[in-house]
Nucleic acid binder design. Structure first.
Lengths: 357, 357
DNA sequence: AGGGCATATTTGATCGATCAAATTATCGCC
DNA sequence: GGCGATAATTTGATCGATCAAATATGCCCT
């Protein structure tokens, strides 16, 4: 049997199409008795409204779009994975579907927006980063397309009120600061920072958090000496870690897990005694290196790391988008237009590896 | 100005809707002169047919669905990432869009199929695994829904011809076999295998490849002694690696990169001399541990690994699906209904770490 | 009983494309 | 030049829902 349509169900039930439609979209307009009868019939017949037909009429596709970025690092890139999963789940729970697409460049991404809006009628987009002077956000705003960003609008915010847009981000500085606090509590004082040197705002933010916490803990004197940047790789972490340890650092806060894996390695190399079994809990090994992003590798190696609440971020992104798409309804349920989530250190005990020779 | 529709463009151009429609869908039915005029106008007006309207009439959404699995390991799971990316790209190139969804269980996945088919009118699905006795494939087949699997139909194949379905997979056995060949060529003979012990077909397959290659290389005597399985973690790799090395293995083929990372560690621990700089190329360090999946971590550590051609797999999946969705057109272009791709070893020189004390 | 009003339900038009069939142009050929 | 066949184009109906407006029903009250 072909699946039922509004019309077929209507004649079978002896009511009009519109009544069934109302039962689903505006139940309060239908008399309770009829409502029940209709809903039961819908249930029994397994009726599901066609999204295409509905979209044609209402101009809403209940479909969000997101660009899948070309696989970055892969070590650090795994946060985007978790984010994507959480996003799909949240969107689904809110009755939206998620459509993926690829783009080579930002300009290409804009071209895709246009395509997807016109052709597929997507309702909004999720961006996973924002640039200093972003063609994408500009285009979206000019065209009145709803969107939300996972990532702060780094430069633009202060410039112009009209350029504001909803975003969610994770407070990197708070994360590195918490890492410092943890280490101080464990007795460390010579706490280094190992960052990458692309001059990007994300890296700067994480370094700033470390600096701030160092000052707050009265450790300002170490700041300029124990601040190092290298390429964001494991190898970079090793060499950077070596330098910091040579400059007498006992603990290292890293801007990424790649760096942290390398830094941990350098610690094993230059301070093998720390890795002896039964080492006291003082300014010893435990959490002496803290990574960032809490990637699966870090977890597997027992590396402490700053864990980003990406699931919360995804949920809020969906909340922001659906709120706007619902036409800014009741003021009571309005979500924050921008939200800075605080990440937290996950402490781990390093995997017992190679005791010193 | 509102975006043009078929009708608006038609009146503006002085032709009928259908002619424009034909210009796009059946250009050979339109006189060349008219065709050019119409296509130029389409270009100029930036006209794009509405997917919703088209779908309503044709019952094709040009939309494929894929379940996003709950983040697995994350170390090994990163292949699915690359796969997803390649899939999106291939689908896009073929004019299809990709819709993601989540499901808690296989039964839930089936429920989602039904939803997505009825509501969103998805044209087909991509599965990223197949179970021994799969409710999902059964449902899809019973309902005549096109689908293709990344992964072999492990048990079912031999049972019943009607249960056949298109799939693409990567020949794990060929990968581990190639790893053995490489190691033999480098002078190794006591080559161990480190697998996980869940008894799943994927792990069995990889082990079988190693065994087969060992026999083919006249190394059968080592098989039973140098075959070990542990949990699929870095820690498991360390302990398993230790055992193998104690049993005099000089090289280790691993069923995953997690295991390989651990195994490499055990080698550093018990055979530190191998890691001295300037070690000869003979049965030395180079490629002495081979992982599987060629994950970013492996690459970062300079670990040799068996790289799966997931991009090819994704491309073929799309080819399979689009072929079926096009109604099995010309026989000449028919893609193989099942395809086993051969992975290859990527050789790397390990990152110089901790020289022995 | 019947008018006035609010509530409940139905009807016809519409979103933007394609299908199937009807109509009109074009061409070869005697 | 005119006939038939084929090619090119147009017309009306349709996919399955919602919108806006029209109609039916119920309720209260004088």
């Amino acid at each position: 049997m072909a699946r039922p349509t509004l019309a077929s169900l209507a004649t079978e039930l002896g009511v009009s199409r519109q009544t069934i439609s109302n039962a689903l979209n505006a139940p309060d307009r239908v008399r309770p008795a009829t409502l029940k009868r209709v809903l039961d019939a819908i249930e029994a017949a397994g009726y599901r409204p066609s999204a295409a037909a509905r979209q044609l009429r209402t101009r809403r596709s209940m479909n969000l779009g997101m660009r899948l970025l070309p696989a970055t690092d892969g070590i650090n890139g795994s946060i985007l994975d978790r984010f994507l999963h959480a996003l799909t789940e949240s969107a689904q729970a809110a009755g939206y579907r998620l459509t993926l697409f690829c783009a080579d460049t930002d300009d290409d991404e804009v071209r895709q927006y246009e395509q997807l809006l016109h052709v597929a009628g997507l309702d909004g987009f999720v961006l996973t980063s924002s640039r200093r002077d972003d063609v994408r956000t500009r285009w979206l705003q000019e065209h009145g397309t709803p969107f939300a960003i996972f990532g702060r609008p780094w430069g633009e915010l202060q410039r112009d009120g009209s350029a504001r847009h909803p975003w969610v981000d994770i407070d990197g500085a708070a994360g590195t600061a918490e890492a410092v606090t943890h280490l101080v509590r464990q007795g460390h004082s010579r706490i280094g920072f190992l960052g990458w040197h692309d001059g990007g705002p994300v890296g700067d933010d994480r370094r700033a958090g470390w600096e701030h916490a160092m000052r707050a803990s009265g450790l300002s004197e170490h700041i300029s000496r124990l601040r190092i940047s290298t390429p964001d790789t494991i190898a970079g972490g090793v060499s950077g870690g070596r330098k910091l340890i040579e400059r007498d650092a006992t603990a290292i806060v890293c801007a990424s897990d790649s760096l942290a894996i390398g830094a941990l390695e350098s610690l094993r190399e230059l301070r093998p005694r720390l890795f002896l079994p039964g080492q006291p809990a003082g300014p010893g090994l435990r959490a002496a290196v803290v990574g960032f992003d809490d990637t699966p590798v870090a977890a597997a190696l027992g590396l402490s790391s700053v864990a980003q609440p990406v699931e919360d971020a995804a949920r809020h992104i969906v909340r922001l988008l659906t709120y706007e798409l619902a036409g800014y309804p009741a003021a009571g349920t309005m979500p924050d237009e921008s939200l800075l989530l605080t990440p937290h250190v996950v402490e781990r005990v390093p995997l017992p590896l190679a005791p010193p020779a």
